[in-house]
Design a protein around this nucleic acid. Structure first.
Length: 448
RNA sequence: GUGGGCGUAGCUCAGUUGGUUAGAGCAUCGGUUUGUGGUACCGAAGGUCGCGGGUUCGAGUCCCGUUGCCCACCCCA
């Protein structure tokens, strides 16, 4: 732990073999639920031109203003062209949607086959102060569906998120909270009304709002609505409601999404405080919550972004998606005791060797290594000692490795053209002819 | 960016009002009469107590600085 030893960069994490048992479980579950709904995987580069994110997420968002992981690009001479303000610098993706939309357009999918349903799992990057459940590099699972404005598509997307958590072991208390952001015209009208309504609170000498709200008032007025300061919440009572000015289609869409969710067994909870932080959302916005987790109950967020594809230079194309952070999911699972110990053992067993080969004398090592290789080629997970341990120590290691069988080769067996195959669970052993080894082992492993 | 807490063996931590060669558990390695295991017992190895300075006869223990990590706020996955 010397001060000059190398360390991982702040906000990053090494995932060791044991950690990856759970991570693989999450990844496989994500792939399974996405594929069940006929979503196909898309992979985009980890970094993009900075202007992509400025445009899609919105200039005034926190992500763009202070959390961008930006690197300068270089000129032909190799000199650095500096800073975030350089529109052609590169930024490591802070979320998935912008890149996926870009790829959707660039790949010509809008013209070719407008309805596209994609998912992704991969690392995202935000340059912010690390904290519990928050890292500078983190993994997200997300889905994006382009080309239909139907309410069943919203419900399908939300359903995938719910499936994901259910398969991981989250129970009946999973909750969908949803709201609508209306269409852009509705939102513009609403913002005007909010500004008119709130302006008096920010005028004169006695400003009752908290300092954050003062800032929000000019930067992003919608955020006033989810301020957690009690007095600010009181001051929000009676503010204009978006639903009063929302157009008929958007209202109806919102209702239909609710019906579609009820059709698949979920009663969504209306929550007017859900105002997602990114600019591109329209109509449906939602979060999946698990109330037993208390303050940190939000597991997943997403919504519709019908204007985004057009904003990015494509023909008007509706879209809807969500993303889940693995880190909060892991945290939640740890708190809930998931996955159950038995499941974790199964995951571990998948990686453990099935056969542990033991050499009695030094002369047995090379022939044994050859036998091990035969088994490996036949698909048997097989391990042996590489450190010259005593037979006794090899047996200890075999036991610890969780292998089902020990394969023992000594001078006696070598002369007889045999090995001893010991069942470490049943504590029984029998000689096996070397020629029959692969078949015998394969057969024994396939039997219960 | 603002505030708080903490840095002692690979890991989790003890270290009394500052006092002689800094401890435990787990993990590692070896052994318990030489070809049969997960338990038990015995033993070994492993630390310039984050780094630098100061106070003191003496500092892991007190003070200052520095660095790293963690937590909270902001915001979010």
């Amino acid at each position: 732990m010397a001060s000059d030893s190398f360390r991982n960069a702040r906000g990053t994490r090494d995932l060791y073999p044991d950690d990856l048992l759970l991570i693989h479980h999450l990844e496989r579950t994500a792939v399974a639920v996405a594929q069940a709904a006929a979503y196909r995987e898309v992979r985009t580069p980890l970094f993009e031109e900075t202007r992509l994110f400025r445009r899609s997420l919105g200039e005034a968002t926190d992500v763009v203003e202070k959390e961008m992981f930006t690197v300068p690009r270089r000129t032909a001479e190799g000199a650095e062209v500096s800073s975030t303000s350089d529109p052609l610098s590169f930024t490591f993706r802070p979320e998935g949607t912008a890149s996926v939309v870009r790829a959707y357009l660039q790949g010509g999918y809008a013209a070719r086959a407008p309805l596209q349903k994609w998912y992704y799992v991969g690392p995202m990057f935000r340059y912010e102060r690390p904290q519990k459940g928050r890292e500078r590099q983190f993994t997200q699972f997300g889905v994006e569906a382009f080309g239909a404005q139907s309410a069943t598509l919203d419900a399908e997307v939300i359903g995938i998120a719910l499936d994901f958590f259910q398969r991981l072991g989250f129970g009946e208390q999973l909750e969908v909270r949803m709201n609508s952001m209306g269409d852009p015209e509705d939102r513009a009208l609403w913002k005007d009304k909010l500004r008119d309504y709130f302006t008096p609170q920010f005028e004169g000498e006695q400003i009752e709002r908290c300092a954050d709200c003062r800032d929000r008032f000019t930067r992003n007025i919608l955020r006033l609505l989810d301020c957690k300061v009690p007095r600010c919440q009181d001051l929000n009572v009676g503010a204009p409601d978006l639903f009063e000015v929302m157009n008929e289609d958007a209202l109806m869409h919102h209702q239909q999404v609710g019906e579609a969710l009820r059709a698949i067994g979920f009663e969504p909870k209306e929550d007017r405080s859900i105002v997602r932080g990114l600019d591109y959302y329209s109509r449906t916005v939602f979060e999946v919550h698990y109330p037993p987790l208390g303050a940190r109950s939000a597991l997943c967020g997403g919504g519709r972004y019908d204007g985004l594809v057009e904003e990015m230079g494509g023909r008007p194309t509706p879209g809807v998606g969500f993303s889940v952070g693995f880190t909060p999911t892991e945290l939640a699972m740890a708190e809930l005791g998931l996955p159950p110990a038995g499941d974790l053992d199964d995951l571990r067993a998948e990686a453990a060797p099935q056969v542990f080969a033991i050499a009695v004398s030094a002369e047995d090592r090379l022939p044994l290594f050859a036998l091990v290789e035969d088994l490996r080629r036949a698909g048997v997970r097989c391990e042996l000692d590489h450190r010259g341990k005593s037979p006794k120590a090899q047996f200890k290691e075999a036991a610890k490795s969780q292998a089902r069988f020990a394969l023992v080769l000594g001078p006696d067996e070598r002369v007889a053209g045999q090995v001893v195959l010991r069942d470490l669970q049943q504590k029984q052993e029998a000689p096996v002819a070397v020629a029959d080894l692969v078949n015998t082992v394969t057969l024994a492993l396939s039997a219960p």
